[in-house]
Amino acid sequence: MNTPILLLQCLFLVLLSGPLFAQRWTTTSQESEQQPLRLHGSLLFQGIYPGFRVGVERPIRQTDFQRSNGRVNSHQRAVLFYVGMYYHPGFHLNTFAGAEYIFRRVGGRGLITEFRSSLALSRTFLGAETYRVGEAGIVETVLASGQFYAMPGLGFGMGKVLGKPGSNRPFAYMVNLNLTGLAPYNGLALPTPTLEIGFRYQLATTSVHFRHRIRTRQ
């Protein structure tokens, strides 16, 4: 048997097994609710070069799995709108603004794991005085020299909800590992891996609609 057919069979089995496991849970509630926006703040390190990222997270969907022991596991999806920067002296200051789609799981004990995919617009500012030579050989100084780049990224994060375990606690801290890149960078992409240490805080003053579903074990 050749490898592609074997792979297709494995894929088929995996897809088939999904609904079988899903049948063990029953949806007991599904409604549109209101939930506060969440404020994000983090220090980031692009290699050894420091920066920060701040943003506002809008919840989109949440599914709570109520276990028989009373604990609730939560699957959340949200979009984070953020701005940030890092500073590599002599190379560039990179400022960026973008959005990130977050797939998050919050365990019964408050342990968070999440996967993120992001897309941002980056504007770099070169790390020193910049010159340009005009047609007539005249040297000019370039103000705010730098470049616009697309900044796509993938990230994985772990964290902990502080306080009493359960979903929607107001405060959580996170450690994220992000693989972002600047493109097109000299025709290719410049990898800019970042380590991020930050927090998430649920704002009490604002709220948005999101889809909330509660599922219990049959």
């Binding site: 590599h88 410049l190 800019t192």
Partner: peptide
């Protein structure tokens, strides 16, 4: 801390 970027050097070697 230096104006060198290791990543840039690696990428540019191929770019």
């Amino acid at each position: 801390y230096s104006p060198n970027s290791l990543m840039s050097r690696l990428v540019n070697f191929y770019s």
